[in-house]
Nucleic acid binder design. Sequence first.
DNA 1: AAGCCAGTGTAGCACTCGCTACAGAATCGC
DNA 2: GCGATTCTGTAGCGAGTGCTACACTGGCTT
Lengths: 187, 187
Amino acid sequence: MASLPKKPAMSKDSLLPLLMAHVMAEGLGQASLRPLAKAAGTSDRMLIYHFGSKEALVSDLLTYIAGVYAGMLDAGVAASARPATRAELLTGLLAQNGDPAMQPFQMLWWEIVSGSARDLPGFRAAARGMVGKLLAWLEGQMPAGDPDPAGGARFLLAVIEGAAMLAAVGHEATAYEGLLAGGLLPT
Amino acid sequence: MASLPKKPAMSKDSLLPLLMAHVMAEGLGQASLRPLAKAAGTSDRMLIYHFGSKEALVSDLLTYIAGVYAGMLDAGVAASARPATRAELLTGLLAQNGDPAMQPFQMLWWEIVSGSARDLPGFRAAARGMVGKLLAWLEGQMPAGDPDPAGGARFLLAVIEGAAMLAAVGHEATAYEGLLAGGLLPT
DNA sequence: AAGCCAGTGTAGCACTCGCTACAGAATCGC
DNA sequence: GCGATTCTGTAGCGAGTGCTACACTGGCTT
């Protein structure tokens, strides 16, 4: 016999990817149980059954999303070529953030930041974790001979997040001009 | 007799400050008509009457908030002493952003950014306007002998917004270390 | 076989949502 | 005067909210 003690046709683990997909497309704030359930092929009844409450569902979902994000970064570490300069690294990061494929994630990210600023349950932890993961990844991406990889990664993190925010409000040109004036982009 | 042509006991102009106060305290996403009306001393019925729809109300409210923000900056221009160096300016900005009194506004700001990223009606325009105003103010605040006030202001804008985001997710130490490593803070 | 219990569907509850219909009240131009 | 216009209160609608009560299945243990 296979080792299925009961008959769990669905579980948190099987639901979370589907819920994440829906939240990516529709947003976190507007997500209510019935649409979420429909996207996951279940009923609101079952979501409450598995997660206990909507609040717990959102919290679990944020944790899951943070994990997926960490996995994406880990996968990217193996694939990407180590840049030679900070400017080169920054250019690549900006290009990646600007990629249209990343936009749903960017939208979700600002919702998470907003929830974190208001300290909604689960948001702060997820945001902290994702930033921490990004920072660690960034340290590993710093150029080989960099004099201060740890500090430099933190500096670049602040800069790219600032640029991302400006882009989110339609000031991508301002961001570019700023980074240029700061001497952070290749000449 | 007083000069009341009709009897406009209330109007958009009289309502918007009260609505803004409520939104500052409670958040923009959770704001629904009945609580908003209660905070403004009216009924949901009247809010719809004056603004036409909730969407229009939010849009008008964002425009109003952007105006208030611009006014605050203008008032600050007259009062503040011009800093001598970029590092000094940045230090002052960080201190201001970290001020607990600014926190309700910071929370609201990230909600506006989130709405702008999703392109909700009115959000992008308000966010753009506020950033534009902040940028202009920042240019005026740049040190007297600065070699590139325009570019420098844009650079500082990206940096402080990145630092503000990191602070919003509980990474204020990371932001500080980054700015330090970037040589942007006084030694 | 008997009982148990995790898992699931149906129906519904109490509530809030944005918005509207309808009726009054006050003030205007005529 | 008197209709018209502007403003405001009461009541409610239809839809959606998170969540629950209840019945029922099917496989488990004993």
